[in-house]
């Protein structure tokens, strides 16, 4: 569980979601509104207040078997309700590395 002290520190300044890595394989996952995890950012529960963010994080943190290291991250809401990662780190987590790996197909 996120400690009460840490929960108090949580402040969001825009639309956010909770993300983590799936325990069995480490895949990037997003907390959904149905209290589960999805590998699609579009499925993530979007919160817009700090109280909502704290509650979503607490609920996600309680699922220690499902996913590891949940945290709150910003998103951008585009026209039509499309959800985009809110920073470069989350963009890389959602879309993969930004480099040409030169790995043979």
């Amino acid at each position: 569980m996120t400690s009460p002290l840490e929960q108090k520190k949580i402040r969001i300044t825009g639309p956010s979601m909770v993300t983590a890595n799936r325990t069995w394989d480490g895949a990037v996952v997003y907390r959904t509104a149905r209290q589960g995890w999805s590998t699609e950012l579009a499925d993530s529960a979007i919160v817009t207040t700090s109280d909502e963010a704290r509650a979503l994080l607490a609920e996600a943190t309680a699922d220690d078997v499902g996913a590891v290291g949940p945290y709150i991250a910003p998103v951008e809401l585009k026209d039509g309700g499309k959800v985009k990662p809110g920073n470069l780190r989350e963009h890389i987590r959602a879309k993969g590395v930004t480099i040409d790996l030169q790995v043979p197909a």
């Binding site: 480490g26 895949a27 590891v68 590395v97």
Partner: peptide
């Protein structure tokens, strides 16, 4: 760990002792 018998807090030190980190995309 996968069965939930160990929490991540308990498991972390054990996986680190075996060279396993958690990074952006995966372990």
């Amino acid at each position: 760990r996968l069965s939930g018998e160990l929490t991540e807090d308990e498991f972390k030190i054990l996986r680190l002792q075996n060279g396993v980190y958690l990074q952006l995309h995966a372990y």
